[in-house]
């Protein structure tokens, strides 16, 4: 476990039996956690629950089988993380109190859900989260402010400015990203090996 206090902790999904409406965003790995959530909750919970599925990397058949397993919750399938978050923002724009937000899957997905929630006045602490699947990260370059998605190595080359970045555990909920800092500023002649660290 990280000793860095800004590193988020994902306690796992638990149903809010009082919520009037449950909105869940997940990816394929996270969908397994949602299936377990529905199994843990009472029978009426699923009827109040809508799921936005990011189907990135899934074939049509696989998506369909996930939709089937999440029934009777309603499921909307989107092509990936970006359209899933866009759909979430639409839902939140007209939502009222009594809505409970959940996120399950990779860290970039959870981070994006928490971020979209905060932009719509939902306290990050009230979002219920569970990490599943890949450990890949979203990294913000502290120098050029560019975002590098799906980072699995440390260090990593910034997708925008090309600097070699040390990926720190320091995390910003507002940016939904880890911090990347130039790793060889003091040793520009050295080029450390990219080690796979977040798979």
């Amino acid at each position: 476990m990280s000793t860095i206090k800004s590193r988020p902790i994902y306690p796992g999904l638990s149903p809010d039996p009082n919520a009037r409406r449950n909105v869940v965003v997940c990816d394929a790995a996270g969908a397994e956690a949602v299936v377990e959530l529905l199994a843990r909750a009472d029978g009426e919970f699923a009827g109040r629950t809508s799921v936005v599925l990011s189907s990135e990397g899934l074939f049509g058949k696989e998506s369909e089988s996930i939709v089937e397993r999440l029934k009777p919750a309603t499921v909307e399938t989107t092509a990936g993380l970006v359209p899933a978050i866009d759909r979430l923002k639409e839902i939140l724009a007209s939502a009222t109190m009594g809505l409970r937000l959940y996120a399950a899957g990779s860290e970039p997905l959870i981070g994006s859900v928490v971020q979209a929630g905060a932009e719509n006045f939902i306290d990050p602490l009230s979002v219920r989260t569970e990490h599943r699947g890949s450990l890949k990260r979203r990294v913000q370059c502290v120098h050029c402010k560019g975002m590098t998605e799906n980072v699995t190595t440390n260090p990593v080359k910034c997708a925008q400015c090309g600097l070699l970045l040390l990926v720190r555990d320091h995390y910003s909920k507002r940016l939904a990203a880890f911090q990347g800092v130039c790793i060889n500023a003091e040793t520009p002649d050295e080029s450390p090996e990219l080690k796979v660290e977040f798979q």
Partner: peptide, 9 residues
């Protein structure tokens, strides 16, 4: 709480 309001609010 029964109306589904989070503790944070």
């Amino acid at each position: 709480t029964l109306a589904g309001w989070p503790d944070e609010n």
